[in-house]
Design a protein around this nucleic acid. Sequence first.
RNA 1: GGCGACAUGGCCAAGUGGUAAGGCAAGGGUCUGCAAAAUCCUCAUCCCCGGUUCGAAUCCGGGUGUCGCCUCCA
Length: 467
Amino acid sequence: MKIYNTATGRKETFEPLVAGRVSMYACGPTVYNYFHIGNARTFLFFDVVRRWFQYIGFDVRYVQNITDIDDKIIAQATLDVVPAAQVAEKYATAFIEDTNALGIEQPDYQPRATQYIPQMIALIDELVKKGHAYELDGDVYFAVESLPGYGSLARKNLDDLKVGARVAANTRKRHPSDFVLWKAAKPGEPKWDSPWGEGRPGWHTECVVMSQDLLGDTFDIHAGAIDLIFPHHENELAQARARTGKPLANVWMHGGFLNMRGDKMSKSEGNFFTARDVLQKYDAETVRLFFLSKHYRSPIEYSPELLDEARTAMANFYDALQFVGWKPGNDAQASWSDEAKARRDEFIAAMDNDFNTARAVSVLFELARAIKNEKDYAIELRREFARLLVDLGGALGFFTDAASRLEVGGALTGKLLDLLVGYRIEFRSRKMYDMADRVRDDLAALGVELKDTRDGTVWSVRHDEVE
RNA sequence: GGCGACAUGGCCAAGUGGUAAGGCAAGGGUCUGCAAAAUCCUCAUCCCCGGUUCGAAUCCGGGUGUCGCCUCCA
């Protein structure tokens, strides 16, 4: 198992802290709005990371936070003329709904910043006492110069940052890169008591406190999108090192962006679609396939054409399953035939190589092709391929609901369809083609597709349009 | 100004020194009452210029282009 580690800039063999276990923390959303489809890429990818670790036998402990107190939430609350907590609650709920709709498994723990205020205050206090932070009119800042090696994660040095700093604002900070740990409350803002007066925590502290509380001082994997490397993750790392002298995480994983017409999709630039919007047009598996068709560290261009392609491809997978009469059951077999094993090994090798999902997905395509290839493969083998397809696909989060997708409205509906198909077969054998075609056309109007294969007439329900 | 990533067929995309996976689209054949499906065939020398090597899309140097980070940000 090799993973690209931002901290070292290299692909490394993954060595868990505890054999057989993985502790991972992914930065979640700041809940001031619906998240966009670019955010979805990140959430979805780390869902796949988690599923993969589980597939290969790891016991995974997965934490993803929700930032429910932040300047942007306060700003939105001001616009909506409601309490900030109400904005946070609304979009936190929406976040959970939307990630569910995307087929993302909920994390084992989903801490919220406001649940950890005392712990954050304790950490900040400790940093002040150790000389790594200082107060300034009710704000508290982390002194980046107090910590040798600050900037190592992003491979930046303080001098360069000084030059590049475009933020003039607070000239009273000791160093322009000093970042805020505690913010004094302005009138009307949400606030908590602290040794430095009433205020709220800065963004970079919550993840340190929550991850260390739930996963320990140092854990296996810390994840997020590429933009979080600096300053967010750098600042988390700084606080953790200042506190414990140890790294916060052994492996830092960062996913690439989803771009819109060349630019990164971003709420502040207004060029985005919410995941909600996209799910109106494309089902969750289509979105998943669209993302997983490319390596997670590469940028992806948002493209309706490619989403359409992904939809076609997904339909083909289900066609293949239908083709050999796949039924839910023991897809995860203890042993596989040589033919199946060869493909499974290829899939595993791809995933174990820094989560090469694009390569892994191509194995699924090859399986689908083989499943439908009645000429070269015996039906038993093709059925095994189907089980393998569902098994491996499941490791990527596909086919989790295949049974119900392939099933139509219960047993009676299935029997009625078989009856109608029987009529078509009968009509065809009597060369009553107008009636035979009427059966097919009428069913097509209802979204049921008939195909006359060598093995007889089969029906399938079109699922490629989401209303 | 500093740091970093990427550049593969009509489109998407894998490839990490051994002679270009896969998907979509397109064209042609077989099969078929028709349609669909299935099946067979066709479709790239990897941004440019140098270098290393028996051999490079893959390594090194130099260009060009695109993008990201340095500021809230998935």
